[in-house]
Design a protein around this nucleic acid. Structure first.
Lengths: 228, 228
DNA sequence: GTCTATACGCAGATAGAC
DNA sequence: GTCTATCTGCGTATAGAC
């Protein structure tokens, strides 16, 4: 592994854990086992190192998603493989960070900072989400054509919704300690599929008239009490 | 408005836009129209000011959610009012930031930083999500009892999923410029309700046998091509 | 390529006058 | 309560030797 690569690795690690400002070049240098001025031999400044790191992460995750989709051939499995891929990419980043840091990692955070600070990264991140959106949209269309995904759901807005769902889960797992993504990932995906797919076997309740929900009849008052 | 309140307002504003490190006390002071050492009269240090600000935000949003739920009486409207409340709280923060900054705000970012840095905030944020989770869970239970929300969806995991969904939308709107939350908020909610509610009028396709999806029969190969 | 030495600026924070 | 003046530390970045 070249010095340059070791610098990049350490940079990604520290940017993920501490953010941009709090990551110091001295820290990166000491982790790599060189002195601070040596970093300037490879990168013009901190900004260039950061931009390089983020681009590197985005290139990798896009490539992994493309590869993983190719291995399966149903819309259900394709969506699942994107989901798995995103989770595993996250896990790999966690691994990169190592056991020393047991703080949750949050790549979205870094993306947000990257966007605000550097316009070139703003474009790159848009490209990434554009790629995700188009990919998922196409999978949905295939699923709808094959009668596997509900046609009453608008494809375009469903695509965005799925992305938001995935990202929201990652986000939540880093800011809500009671929530562990690994314990629910399978049930989450199954449940999501249940909602969007034609395999839905829900049988409407028989005690209510079918028109009930459409009427503007005043529903029973539901006490929210103080219990919760 | 007291000096202390003006400091807090400016602090929230700057922490939201620039994050913790990049927000300097000199900047806050100059915005408020005082000198830096005056801040130390009200707050022990930068850390205390930050912790105070985050607690202030969380208290406000919790209160707004509690108030907004009380005004409606069906599970559909309750969920919708939580969603609306979260969106409006976000808009209010945008307003606070003012037109000068047209960068998207992202409160989740700040929560993540807060968690990692200060353990008292870590607890406070957990409390907030616990509150959200319990509130939504109870609404779901009411909805399921009244045959308005699908009973084949697990209530507890649905609650988490809804939170992830909302937060994911906010997150996405700040890191994906093609996506504007305001243009899709109503269709998003309607669509979500379509997925979780008993009002689902989806009719399974007639050309396929019902057992088709359950068989492990090899599906047609779907070419992903290079077009996308 | 990697180092030592060092410039420079700005951050958080304090002392003490008014 | 608010200020001026000042301390201290650490960050990015550069010059130039080896």
């Amino acid at each position: 592994m070249t010095t340059k690569n070791r610098i990049i690795n350490s940079a990604i690690k520290n940017f993920l854990v501490f953010g941009y400002e709090k990551t110091s070049l001295s820290l990166i240098a000491s982790e790599v086992g060189i002195k601070k001025p040596s970093i300037y031999y490879y990168f013009k400044n901190k900004e260039e190192l950061f931009i390089f790191s983020i681009n590197h992460i985005l290139d990798s995750v896009e490539q992994e998603i493309i590869n993983s989709i190719k291995k399966v051939d149903t819309s259900k499995l394709m969506l699942e493989s994107i989901f798995t891929c995103m989770i595993e990419f996250n896990s790999n980043l966690s691994l990169l960070i190592g056991n020393d840091y047991n703080k949750p990692i949050n790549i979205l955070n870094l993306f947000h900072l990257a966007r605000n600070r550097f316009s070139s990264l703003s474009e790159r991140i848009d490209n990434y989400y554009n790629f995700l959106e188009t990919t998922i949209l196409n999978i949905i269309k295939i699923g709808q054509n094959n009668n596997k995904i509900r046609k009453d759901l608008d494809d375009k807005s469903l695509a965005i919704k799925i992305i938001a769902w995935f990202e929201g889960l990652f986000m939540l797992s880093t800011i809500y300690s009671s929530f562990n993504i690994n314990t629910i990932r399978q049930s989450f995906y199954d449940n999501m599929w249940k909602m969007i797919s034609c395999e839905n076997e829900y049988i409407p309740p028989k005690k209510e008239k079918k028109g009930f929900f459409k009427n503007k009849s005043k529903p029973k008052t539901i006490s929210l009490g103080t219990k919760w």
